[in-house]
Amino acid sequence: MINIDERKILKNLFSYILLIVLAVVILVPFFIGIWTSFLPTADILKGNYFSTNISLTNYLDAFTKTPILRYLGNTVVVSTLIMLAHLLFCSMSAYAFVFLDFKYKKFFFALFMVTMMLPGEAAIIPNFQTVKALGLLDHYSAMVVPALTSAFGTFMLRQAFLQTPKELKEAADIEGLNHFQIFWKVILPYNRISLITLGAYSFLGAWNSYLWPILVTFSNESRVIQNGLKQLQSEETFNNWGMIQASAAIIVIPTILVLFIGQHYFKSGLNEGAVK
């Protein structure tokens, strides 16, 4: 008996060692990035990671000497607009595909599906010309307008709307509600979890987009954070590693905090979906 216990403890010990080693490997880039963001650049460039000159100077510099707050503000505005637009337009088109009968419905749905197979990266030349012709270059709208709807979002919400219980639709019919009322008062509230999921997905997608914004923005007034870091890194601040690391930390810390807090809800959301 003792023998088995010992073997079990040894096995667990081995598991823990492996778990810890892998955690360290994954977290090393964070540790180094965040630690060096507190050190003076002179020490970093000498490779003196164990310097004791810890300060918040890099953060102050990042906030006062670079437009990072402007970049963050731009990104929040653009991502929020895209998220709201997706929630509205995707749920509307999904509603049409589930609850309305119209000519060529199957054909139009097939079009949506085909759209999901086409990479946006391959459409940059004509889209750039379109946005330029519309006079939207270097404005928020250059990033928002082409991203107002999403075929994937429509598809995802359609799958959710299909699960709406018949009784709910019938009750709405008896009440004599028109389609706008059914859409707004019945279908959207009933599918709020799917809407939250799509909202999070769309916001993150917009937050992380890199190629399109770099093509259509040229000034700090409209530049988003993903391109902004490249700008900082290539401009006057080229070798100011301390400040660049601080900028990266300023961006990543809020997202990770949100993730940790959100993970609890995310998990319970998944469970809820499973019970359904």
């Binding site: 337009f89 995707c90 509307m92 088109s93 509603y95 049409a96 595909f97 309305l100 009968d101 119209f102 419905k105 139009f108 079009l111 949506f112 759209t115 086409l118 946006g120 391959a122 459409a123 030349i125 004509p126 889209n127 379109t130 082409p146 107002l148 709807t149 075929a151 429509t154 389609h179 859409f183």
Partner: peptide
Amino acid sequence: YYASIFAGPSLFLLGLFTFYPMFRT
């Protein structure tokens, strides 16, 4: 009438920013 209001905007946008550029490319 409802279908054109509900699906119209998305179809128009996908047409302009996904299908048109594909054929144009």
